[in-house]
Amino acid sequence: MKIKIPSIIKKQIIALTGFLLSGFVAAHLLGNIMIFFGPDAYNSYAKKLMSLGPILYLMEAGLIIIFLIHMGFTITLVIENRKARPIAYKKTPSTKKRSIATRIMPYTGTLIFAFVVLHLLDFKYNNHYGMVAGKLQEGLYARVYESFTDPLHSLLYIIAICAVSFHLTHAIQSMFQTFGLSSAKSHPYLVKISITIGVLIALIFGSLPIFVMVKEKAAQKPKVSFYDTSKEVMHNET
């Protein structure tokens, strides 16, 4: 016998997994802020994370499962929803209440997925070397730094961050509604909070590549130097 999950429960599962994923995004954001504090802070943070060993793998596996559940249920719902209106309107009702973020949810979601894959290949499953201010350095910092000095790379990153931001502006308030935690009174505030968080994420994450590019530009001018690169030692793999 096939157990049919009620539509509302499906959405609540999407909301719950989405909540967990945004928790990850928040933690990731806090970690990445370390870039602002230079290579030592960032690399030691990365090392600490790697030293978690099996716990990290467990968390990663969990994250992948959560991600797949989130996408799987969403895809089934999107397909069901398309089927619910077989004949389209000549003049489509809408745009009265729906924000752009709401309308493009499945697309921003797809974009985020594509980005996550790229992002992992880029930073997780790649060597951790990179050119920093014309010198080859070891460490995740250098890898990230070099990537961000490439304008195309930075642009892709910023687009993906905008997708996350848009996704969250709808998602956060939507989660409260789906769990039934919002009321007629609180709903308008929840919408505002959602938008604020979305914009903040876009600004903080989005400023990372810009920060690196500005820093690199400055480093290329011989006299201005943000930190002393002469002390940096090149490590050889042993």
């Binding site: 929803n81 089927k83 619910a84 009702p93 809408s94 009265k96 209440k97 709808h170 939507s174």
Partner: peptide, 8 residues
């Protein structure tokens, strides 16, 4: 269909 909180 399922509600996706469009509020239309």
């Amino acid at each position: 269909g399922s509600c996706s909180n469009e509020y239309e």
